[in-house]
């Protein structure tokens, strides 16, 4: 009965999505709660948003996290694109297995191990070369790039795998140098993958608590570190307000990107139809 009954499919969809969204909705609803007791409804109010905007500590941490996330996403996208290109297009070479292993392992490696190993590395480097002096923004950014470039690599690699190399080969046959082929042919084709890779690297960096806690120094508390220290003391309504803002921004970003890609795809399909009907 299982596979054919729409009932079963419908109920798994309803149950699955209820499970995924009820916790997020509860955060949003209670952020508008007047009462300080988070789960007792005391009337509608936006006071917690006001309180949030007055909290310099949270605003500073958010600004720090946003700066780290931006630099991280850009760096991870550049290095990850190179790695994805190498894995998808360079064929077999000595050390390919090693590169492939090093780009997939961070995807599943527990954060505590990555965080500890990077911290010990930074300490050893400081002892040996005096760089990085102390820990802070630089070390957090390097750690995040190492973590997130794997995600970009996987996205770029799988995007390149779905395309055959014929366009690139054609450009090479016409005499374009490899660097030119990459900049003028490959890069425009995989641009959507780069956008999703950048966004993913950005949100992962904005969200990381464990690795940042290991490699940060005094005075560089990122937003997740601040949230964690507040949340450990219990539920507080201004964190709900913060969560609502973050969920809202991310959903907006994902929807806009999704819409733009959808439109781009539709335009491409229309052009292809026109081209084939003209031929």
């Amino acid at each position: 009965m299982k596979s054919q009954t729409p009932w079963f499919r419908l109920s798994s969809l309803v149950f699955g999505f209820a499970f995924l969204y009820i916790p997020i909705l509860s955060l949003i609803v209670y952020s508008f709660n007047k009462s300080k007791l988070v789960t007792v409804w005391g009337g509608f109010s936006t006071q917690w948003y006001g309180k949030l905007l007055e909290n310099d500590q949270i605003l500073d941490a958010a600004w720090l996290s946003l700066r780290i996330a931006t630099v991280n996403a850009t760096g991870a996208t550049i290095i990850g694109t190179f790695a994805g290109l190498v894995l998808a297009r360079f064929g077999q070479f000595r050390g390919r297995t090693m590169l492939s292993a090093m780009t997939t392992a961070p995807l599943v490696m527990p954060d505590v191990i990555t965080g500890l190993s990077l911290l010990l590395m930074f300490v050893a480097m400081e002892q040996a070369f005096g760089w990085p002096a102390g820990r802070g923004i630089t070390t957090i950014t390097i750690a995040h790039i190492t973590l997130t470039l794997s995600y970009v690599t996987v996205i770029v690699q799988s995007r390149l795998a779905t395309l055959d190399g014929s366009l690139e080969e054609a450009a090479m046959d016409l005499g374009a140098r490899p660097a030119r082929v990459f900049l003028l042919v490959t890069l425009p084709i995989i641009a959507p993958a780069l956008v999703s890779g950048w966004l993913l690297a950005f949100t992962i960096s904005l969200d990381d608590l464990v690795i940042a806690s290991f490699v940060s120094g005094p005075g560089s508390s990122t937003l997740p570190m601040l949230i964690y220290s507040k949340v450990r003391l219990g539920v507080s309504p201004d964190i709900n307000a913060l969560a609502t803002i973050m969920v809202g921004l991310v959903s907006l970003g994902v929807m806009i990107t999704g819409y733009l890609m959808f439109r781009r795809e539709r335009l491409r399909q229309r052009d292809m139809q026109l081209a084939s009907s003209a031929a």
Partner: peptide, 30 residues
């Protein structure tokens, strides 16, 4: 659309999604 709806929570903060469960599972929680 459905897959985007599955992935969307993954894009929002992991820490805050865990935090949401405190409010749900508390003694006087949801």
């Amino acid at each position: 659309v459905l897959m985007m709806m599955v992935i969307l929570p993954f894009w929002t903060s992991f820490l805050l999604r865990v935090y949401a469960w405190i409010g749900i599972l508390k003694n006087n929680g949801l």
